[in-house]
Each structure stands twice: as structure tokens, then as C-alpha cells.
Write a protein that binds this DNA or RNA. Sequence first.
DNA 1: CGAGAAAGTTAAAACGGTTTCACACCCGGG
DNA 2: CCCGGGTGTGAAACCGTTTTAACTTTCTCG
Lengths: 343, 343
Amino acid sequence: MSDGRPSIRDVAARAGVSVTTVSRILNGSYPPAPKTRDKVMRAVQELDYVANPHARALTRQGTGTIALVVMMLDDGFLMNLVESIATGVAEAGKLCLIGTSGGDLDRELAVLRQMHAQHVEAIILVGAVVESDEYRERMSAFAAQLRQSGTRLVLCARPPIDPSFQDASVEYDNEGGAYAATSHLLSRGHRRILLLGGPDGQSITTRRSIGYRNALRDLGGDLDPSLEIHPAWNRESGYARMRELLDAGPPAFTGVLAHTDHVAAGAMQALRDAGLRVPDDISVVGFNNDSFAADLQLTTVHIPARELGRTAAALAIAPSPTEPHTTLGTHVVIRDTVRAVRR
Amino acid sequence: MSDGRPSIRDVAARAGVSVTTVSRILNGSYPPAPKTRDKVMRAVQELDYVANPHARALTRQGTGTIALVVMMLDDGFLMNLVESIATGVAEAGKLCLIGTSGGDLDRELAVLRQMHAQHVEAIILVGAVVESDEYRERMSAFAAQLRQSGTRLVLCARPPIDPSFQDASVEYDNEGGAYAATSHLLSRGHRRILLLGGPDGQSITTRRSIGYRNALRDLGGDLDPSLEIHPAWNRESGYARMRELLDAGPPAFTGVLAHTDHVAAGAMQALRDAGLRVPDDISVVGFNNDSFAADLQLTTVHIPARELGRTAAALAIAPSPTEPHTTLGTHVVIRDTVRAVRR
DNA sequence: CGAGAAAGTTAAAACGGTTTCACACCCGGG
DNA sequence: CCCGGGTGTGAAACCGTTTTAACTTTCTCG
């Protein structure tokens, strides 16, 4: 065509065989006479022929495409996740479609529909879940639709949509991470620990709050609701909320657990601006172990982003996963923003 | 079929019209009788019909897909770039395929071929270029192939493949950024400025070196080849190379210009470890204005990543770009890692 | 030597759309 | 009454591949 791309007919004509034969040879369906094979392969070489994947998708099932849907690409954790998913998918010789929802539920659903319409083999859905019945209902209807059309759904870094579903999923241990971080602060003598949680009503926030409270309860910290506040996940919000708190009076806490290294960084800035030193006056722990945490000497909870990504990619690729549900561990990386509380 | 998706024939049958009519109505080819239109639309609704994009791609040209090829997703600059490209593409109702090359030239070419085989409408190629004849040659052959098949190529944050080509492209001013950063240091009395450039033989490195040298020449700094070294683009490399230098003896420079904020961060760490204070003893300027630069109080060169991404997306989408080549400006963000040199 | 199996190849029918071309219909004007 | 020209609609061809089923050869064995 004017496209300049040769079709399988051109190859067949040049090799002096039928279209069927060419198709067979290229797909490795049973071995034809070596002589024919050579003729065809030569023709393919000469014409630089590559099969049209769309035509292929029409007959075969399997488009060789995996979709990746993520809310936003705004921190190092998600970046590592996306990178490792993308390479995992590429290593399997498949293509990776990416879509961002920007945190808007309608847009998320629209993107998911579009991906589904594209006949992708699997959809990897990354990130936070809103804890509303409406959302759960919509997602669960969509998941049913996916199942019916044979599209796999892989949930990554988020809890199952519905307890009764057994979609493939890979999570990390939010509750355990928060528990460990809180314990770390408690073990240094901190009793009043400010939780700078994520936005309210998101599953991640909830899980981590549970871990935080359990640790306080188990190990004897102050369980005070006024110590839990919910900034957005970014630096600015962390700064602003900490600033508010400090403007209102002397801090009612000696330790801080932030749900993001960015939030931790913002909070630390606000503390410094208020003349408080970290960790001498106030200790701070972050979450994610973003690359810059090392530069800030920030003690933080490490999330195995790359492993998470690799696992998600593997689940998306495997026709039937051996282990459909995995939870990866988290651990505290100790640096230099936590110190024993002064008496 | 067994995958539960209705075909255009099902819709036609249900609406009691021909397939042709359904196709016409859905594509807005000339307006048919309103009555027919309603019947068809109702059938579409009831069946939840969505046209199969692969079948569509077979006849029409235009798959509604844009490809994005990037070496690696390892810093905030690229993350912002990818995010803004992805949203730009999505806002145009198109899909975005993403591929990573991991810096491997063969893999890069393989990915590009795969994208091309997929009949994408445009390919956005992001990031550094190796300055070798072989690379230039291969890329230029590939670009010609793309042109022939009507696939647009958009170069983002990288120079044109071949001066004679006028592929759509959007760059930022590497030379100007390096010039400005160097001037900034010179204006504070620094004469001997260490350049922690990117890997040798990459276009970005070259452009920035030129800006650096021009500033030294114009404004009277020391033009000393031993002051130009080339770590990789990451924190570890920045740390290691600075460490080596300091281990070899007292620093022969008072200012540092790093090609990445990560490198700057690593270098600063090494300086601190060697007992030198930033900025009291040594001044440091970074590049990228990554989000964490604010936390380090790092003076750095801002690159307009989001604008770069939006522009690239626009170029990829527009059938014929009005302004095929754009260079966006860079500027120095002054924070607190540069101080006047002590005499 | 002939029958039947095995090996190699192919024509034709999918797949799910778009597009070309022809047809049927209705209306107004000569 | 016949012709010309919209207006809606549909049959059929096509896009580039896979797959089914049938058709030649050639081989093997009784």
C-alpha cells in the first residue's frame, strides 16, 4: 500500500507460495519442507516484512498488550513501580499501554473502559482506593465485565476490590510498615506521635492508621485522635499542615510519622522554620524510602517498589498465576531523623 | 463471541438495519434519518457496544495510539515529563504506549521497531542521544522508514537526529542553562568551577559543556580540562567521583556545577563527609530542579519538564504542527548552596 | 501394484469493521 | 408522463491475518 508496508500477500507472491504457507511458517505451526521455509524466510528478509498486529488481533486472541493504569506519577515510589512494570512487560515481548486517572474516578473508569475496548490481555491497576460503596460497586461491576471477556485484572499496591473476588494482586504491608515505624519511635521513648496520614477515606490511609494505633496500644503510646491529621500526599501539604499546628501553639508531640517522604520533608521544613530542630527537638519518620530520603538523612519505611512492579508484571503476563495473591514486606530504614526523647 | 463482546452485526440485527448504516451513524458520516439514528443508538446502548479498534485500524488509517520511548525512569524530571505526555495524549482521547530502552541502543531500536509495527500514529522519543556515527546512522535510517509510512516522529529533550531533517522536536536550552549556572557562580567570585558532567559522548553533556566553557571564557573563569569530570547521572556516582577527588588532595575548586540534582546531592554528601561545608567552603549548583532540590536548599537550573511534555504531546497529536521545532528556556533557581567565595 | 497413511500445500472462510457503488424511493419541473 | 436529482439504505468488496478443511503428492506396506 501507500503505507510502504508489505503485506503477507506480497511475501507469498515473492516466495511463490500461498499465503497460508507463509502464515504457518511465521507462526511455527508444524514444520514445512525446509526448502519452502528458506524461500519464505528470504522473501520476508528482503521485504522487511512484519505482520500487522491488528489484523492478527482480529483472529487470534491475545493482542500482546498489557495496560497499566495509575492515578498520577508524582513520586519516586510510583516511578519505580511504573518503570519496573514497564520493563517486566517489555521483557516478555509485550507492549505496555499507560493511562493516568489524575485521581478522578470518572476518568479512571473511562480509561479502564478504553483499555478494555482495546482488548488488552491484562489490566494492572495501581494505587490508592477510595473507600466508598459507590466506588466499590462500580469497580466490581467492571471487574465482572473483564472476567467475562477473559481480560485479567491485576491489583498492585492496593487491596482487593471485593473480599469475595480473587483477582490477582500484589500488595505491600501497609499496616506492618506503620506498626514498625511507630514502634521505632516508641522504642526511643516517644509517647505522643503525630500521624501525618494520607487523605481520609483512602484504603492506604486506613491500613496505616490501624498499624499506627495498634503499635500505640500494644506498646503504650498516647492514643489521641487529635494527633491524627490528613494532609494530601505532597510536600506543600505537609508543610502547610505542620505550620498550622505549630502556629497554634507549642507542639503536643515529640515524634512524627508521615505517610510520604515528601510530606515528611515538608513537615521538617515547617519545623525548622519554627525554630525546632530535627531530630534534636522532634523526631520524624517518613514512608516510601524515596531516593531523596538518603539526602535528608530521613528515617523512613521502605516499600519494595521494584519487586512490587516485577510481581505485578509477572501476574499480568502469566496465563494462570501460581500464586495469585502476594503481600510483600516493608521495613524501617534507620537514618538520622529519630532520636531518643529528652526528659 | 465467547468473549461476550457484541459485534457491529449484533447491533445491526437488533436495530433492524444493515451493518453499513450502523457504521455510518457511529462515525458520523452523513446524517441519516433521525428515526434510524435513534433505533441504532438504542441498540448500541442496550448491547453496550464498543467498536473493535483493531478491526478499525485495518481499514482506516489512524490507530489512535501514540508511542513514548524513554531510556529510563530514574529521576523526577523524566517522571514529570512522562506524566505530562501521558495526560496530554489521554486528553486528546488517544492511547499512550510506553517503552523503556534502559540505555541499551539495541533494545531502543527493537522497541522503536515494535512500536512502528504497531502502526502508532506518532513516536515520541525522549532523552539523551549518543554521539556516535553508528547511532546517528541507524536512527536516521529508522526515521526515514517512519516518514515513508506516515508515522510522525517527535524528539523530546534531545537534539535533531540529523541537521538536514526537520522532525518535530521540542528541546530545552542546555547550553543556556549551563551558561547561566556557571555565570551565577562566577558572579559570586568563583573562578575554579568543577563540572560534574553527564556521561561522556552524550549530546546533553556536550551542549552543557559548551555553555560552561563559554561562560568561563566570557566572564573570566579558569578554563581547566582537569576540572571537567563525567560521573553517571545518579547520586552514587556523584558521591564516588567527588570522594575520589577529595581523597587525592585539597580541592582545586571553590564551586561545583553538577548535571543532575542527584549528582549534586551525592557530591554534597561527599563534601560533608570530608569535613567541607556547603556553601561556606564550597558552592554547589545542580540541574533539573527535581522536587527534592527544595529540601536540600539546592540552587539549581530549572528545566520546564511539564511544558516540555505538553508540547511533545501536542506535536505528536497535531496532524501538521504549526511550529515544528521549539526550544524552551531554562533558568537558575537560587536557593542556598552558593555563597560568595572567601578571599 | 494398489491402498492408505503421512506430509506438504492451498483455497476459502472467518475476524469486525469501513467504504464503494448501486438501488429504491420520493419529489418537483418540463 | 418522463426525467433528473436528492436522500436513505444495503450488498458486497476490502483491510491483513489465522485457521479449517480439502486437496495433492509422496511414502509405506501388504
